[in-house]
Structure formats: structure tokens, C-alpha cells
């Protein structure tokens, strides 16, 4: 056990986290916020997280440690403001007390009733993530650490109310339309069906599109950051309708990267969605009306 050996001979040991039933578990692609995505195991809020931590020694080495622990962390990270991490959950389990390992060793762990109140989320300014972290504390050498990220998703009951969105908007003597979306709440694989009635058209409309906008607000107090992001632009009409025309609308959500609507997650961030109906006239003036819709998860995935 020498410093030299440590520096030159490579790690004395590796630490792996093996989750129970990982092969069978559903996985979900998740952005890490820097453009890279990982396929991560998916847990529901109430599910326990268990598995084995393996400590594998390099051949002929031993490992002296001051203790081994595993944490399950749920954290909200502000991406702009690095370091601002708020752990809303941190459960620790001691796996071993200080000692020396002479051979590989496995520890089982199980966070059976851990609190995972929020869904994993990666946004523009904020990230909510869960991870397991194993720490082998050592006295002279750096700690050995292993992390395993998880995705947490919750499903919602199908809302009882299926009321539609109906709205009449207009600019006096210019444009008068009435639009209708069949629901207020859509699950993420849903189809938005709608109709746009033109009651009065006195502008030269070039086209009409429907956009889905995600509005994310993160932070508290004076530090709140709001970001809007257009997730999709979907042209629903080409050309100018006349009075009395009714244009159908049908948008399949499944191909769009949506998350459920989140309201005030841990009082730190919200994610809301809006349908934005935009009319563009021949001078490229845009007339629009935004309408919030609720997205929810009907099933995992």
C-alpha cells in the first residue's frame, strides 16, 4: 500500500453498481443536458431501487478503506448557475464499516421506500435527476466513487374531465376566428384534433400553423429564469380561407419530444406547454393565440 504504487499501478479497485433486474427494466433515453443522451433505467416514483454494489480489486491488491456507503440522490440542478444543486432527496446506506478488503466483495442494497416525488427532467436551464452514488472512503488516497443515474417517471390517471378548448378570438374588422381543440389535457402519445372556423377574414392570410411551446421557469425569487422553446411547428393551412371556411387540425404528439406539464417542482421550476395557433399574412405579420394544454404521462416510456 504505497502512494507510489497507487499512482503508478493504476486503481487498486473498481466499484460497480448492478441494479436488480436491469436487463428486464424499461429504459428511457435521457438527455444529459449537453446534447448527449443516455439510455437509462426507468423507475416509477413508488418503486424501490435495489441491487448489488461490487467492489473488484485489482489482482494481488488489497483495499484499505474507512467505510463504504451508497446514496440515492434526487437533485435539481440549475444549469446556468453551475454548482447550484439542490438535493431534495438524499438517502444514505452504510454498506461496510472501515476495514481492509483482500478480495472482491459484493454488497446488496435496497432503497425500498425511498421518496421520488418528481420526474426526471432535462430542460434548458434546469435538470432534475436521480442517481445512486457509491463512495469508498479512504484515508490517504482519493475516494473511490461510482454513480448510476436513474430515470424516474410517474404516470397520471386519465383525467376525468375531457372538456375541450373552445375560443373565439379576433381583431376587429380584420379577422375573426373560432378555434377548438378537442381536449385540454393530452397524454404524450395523444393526437390533438381541432378545427379552426373563419368567421371573418379581411387580411390576406398566407398560411396557418400550430406550434407547441414549452415554457420553462426555473429558480426562485429574483433568480427566476424563464425560457420558451418551440418544440414543433405544424402547418395546418396553406393559403387564404374565406369566411365560413373550417379547417381541420390533427397533430400526432408521439413524434414530438414532450414531457408532462410540471407545475412548481419543489418550488424550483415549472414546465408548461402551450398550443400556439399562428396566422401569417402576406406581409409576414403574425397573428397568434396561445393556449395552455396539459400534457401528462399515461404510460411509461
Amino acid at each position: 500500500m504505497s502512494l507510489f504504487g497507487n499512482l503508478v499501478g493504476g486503481p487498486q479497485a473498481r466499484v460497480n453498481i448492478k441494479l436488480t433486474g436491469i436487463d428486464q427494466r424499461m429504459k428511457k433515453e435521457m438527455s444529459s443536458g449537453r446534447g448527449t443522451t443516455h439510455l437509462l433505467p426507468l423507475y416509477q416514483a413508488h418503486e424501490g431501487v435495489g441491487g448489488i454494489v461490487e467492489v473488484i480489486l485489482a489482482p494481488g491488491k488489497k483495499l484499505e478503506h474507512l467505510g463504504i456507503k451508497i446514496e440515492l440522490v434526487g437533485a435539481i440542478e440549475m444549469l446556468q448557475d453551475r454548482g447550484s444543486v439542490h438535493e431534495f432527496t438524499n438517502l444514505v446506506k452504510e454498506l461496510d464499516t472501515a476495514g481492509v478488503l483482500f478480495s472482491d466483495k459484493q454488497y446488496t442494497f435496497d432503497f425500498a421506500t425511498v421518496d421520488k416525488p418528481y420526474d426526471s427532467y432535462t430542460g434548458l436551464n434546469v435538470r432534475l435527476r436521480y442517481f445512486l452514488k457509491v463512495t469508498v472512503t479512504r484515508q490517504y488516497a482519493p475516494n473511490l466513487v461510482a454513480e448510476q443515474e436513474l430515470v424516474v417517471q410517474s404516470t397520471t390517471q386519465v383525467p376525468e374531465s375531457h372538456s375541450s378548448i373552445k375560443m373565439e378570438v379576433g381583431i376587429e374588422d380584420c379577422l375573426h376566428i373560432e378555434f377548438e381543440y378537442d381536449k385540454q389535457k393530452y397524454h404524450l402519445k395523444d393526437v390533438i384534433l381541432g378545427k379552426i372556423y373563419f368567421l371573418l377574414v379581411r387580411i390576406k392570410i398566407k398560411h396557418m400553423e400550430l406550434a407547441i411551446i414549452r415554457r420553462e421557469s426555473a429558480g426562485t425569487g429574483a433568480n427566476v429564469m424563464n425560457e420558451s422553446e418551440t418544440l414543433c411547428k405544424f402547418e395546418v393551412m396553406d393559403g387564404a380561407p374565406v369566411k365560413g371556411e373550417c379547417i381541420p387540425l390533427r397533430l400526432f404528439l408521439s413524434s414530438i419530444a414532450l414531457t408532462p406539464t410540471y407545475r412548481s417542482v419543489n418550488n424550483r421550476f415549472s414546465v408548461r406547454y402551450y398550443l400556439n395557433l399562428v396566422l401569417v399574412d402576406e406581409e409576414d405579420r403574425r397573428y397568434f393565440k396561445q393556449q395552455e394544454v396539459i400534457f401528462y404521462n399515461k404510460e411509461l416510456g
Binding site: V236, M237, D238, G239, A240, P241, V242, E245, C246, I247, P248, R250
Partner: peptide, 13 residues
């Protein structure tokens, strides 16, 4: 026939 209403431009329609 219903969806085709999306094209209101006379010639393209």
C-alpha cells in the same frame, strides 16, 4: 376529403 381543406390556396388546392 376533409383533411384536404388544409390547402386553401386555390390553385394548389
Amino acid at each position: 376529403v376533409e383533411m384536404s381543406k388544409g390547402v386553401q390556396h386555390p390553385m394548389r388546392g
